[in-house]
Design a protein around this nucleic acid. Structure first.
Lengths: 203, 203
DNA sequence: ACCTGAACACCGTTCAAGT
DNA sequence: ACCTGAACACCGTTCAAGT
């Protein structure tokens, strides 16, 4: 019907439609066909603007996971911020489908790392050490949520032990405790290594 | 052609065929149709014996991930064994597709936990503490490998920075270091908490 | 009882037209 | 140039026969 490229249809509108379908019906309902149908067009323009389904899902994930990191407070130690940072990341990641979050070096993750790296550098960390520590916390958090969320949505497992007494005794409270313990151990370890390397320099 | 149920065709043979296809062509090539075609049958018997595709993939994962834990050595401290246990788990998990490993409470994981829990209990851990610590190390290891492997196979990402100077400076060596650091922090943290709770009891 | 062929309702992706 | 309809080569799953 139209010869000039539809000016209403840019990559952003396509990603927005995909996010709507994701929110309403879940990740499995997001297809090149369902997205184009929602926009009232054929799948071809989606391919020409986005590329393919992988690219679409990456774009969806980047939009869903924008601005993951909480703002830094004044007079906050790096350990305090690191604790808030991991907890906030976990809360945000849990809202997304676990299949979208398992991707290291996702743009959103690189962005989210920046404030934590900055805080650590202001607290005396060497650039390399700050980046490494931040990557450690990021991987640990993303990996934890992937496992935590991977229980229900993707593969339903068949076995009939959803409601009632839980299977191996893993309640949501257990999971919270496990996450807190995990992050505490990592942050304490990073702090200890940082102190010992500072001692090396002093000496 | 045959009326009696084929005695050569049990669930094991179906899973074995799926594993063969997985090894030869990757996870994406494993379908109810490709598996039944390899066995020379229609998809229907696969459904009647396995259930559905989720059940098939779970069975494949359980077979691929059997016997994950290394044997315990005599006169080995729990920290030494925990280090070997996480390293061996990582090596084994890396051989599988990351999409198959992200499932907490997978039967193979429960089995793999047993020897580590036993070693920790022999070293004075309370039952609950040993189970919790083991779960922590399991989740951390599985999550790490999921991230580590999730870079290449599932979504190829499009961006052209595979060969040559790597993107954000994440070499395989960096990844090895990160894993070692991660596990060391966790094991040290577990040891420290165990010592302090033992002190509470002594006092 | 247990199989097969065929079908249903989808996929991702591309091609050959149309304007 | 950019669209659409149609097609290709698949999926997971189920149904209606066949023996």
């Amino acid at each position: 019907m139209a010869r000039p490229p539809d000016p209403e249809l840019d990559a952003d509108a396509i990603v927005a439609a995909a996010v709507e379908i994701l929110r309403e019906q879940g990740l499995d309902a997001v297809s090149m066909r369902s997205v184009s149908a929602r926009l009232g067009i054929s799948p071809v323009p989606v391919y020409s603007r986005i590329g393919n389904k992988d690219a679409l899902l990456n774009a969806v994930a980047d939009r869903l996971l924008a601005d993951l990191a909480p703002p830094t407070g004044p007079d906050e130690t790096w350990t305090q911020y690191a604790e808030r940072w991991t907890a906030e990341l976990r809360n945000r990641l849990r809202l997304a489908d676990s299949r979208l979050i398992v991707a290291p070096r996702r743009n959103s993750y690189v962005q989210a790392s920046r404030p934590l790296v900055d805080v650590m550098r202001r607290n005396g960390f060497a650039p390399d050490a700050a980046v490494q520590a931040c990557r450690l916390l990021m991987w640990a958090t993303v990996g934890f949520v992937a496992l935590e969320a991977g229980a229900s949505p993707p593969q339903d497992d068949g076995r009939a032990f959803r409601s009632g007494g839980d299977p191996g005794g893993v309640t949501p409270e257990d999971t919270d405790v496990l996450f807190g313990l995990h992050m505490r151990y990592l942050i304490e370890g990073i702090a200890r290594d940082a102190r010992s390397s500072a001692r090396d320099i002093d000496h």
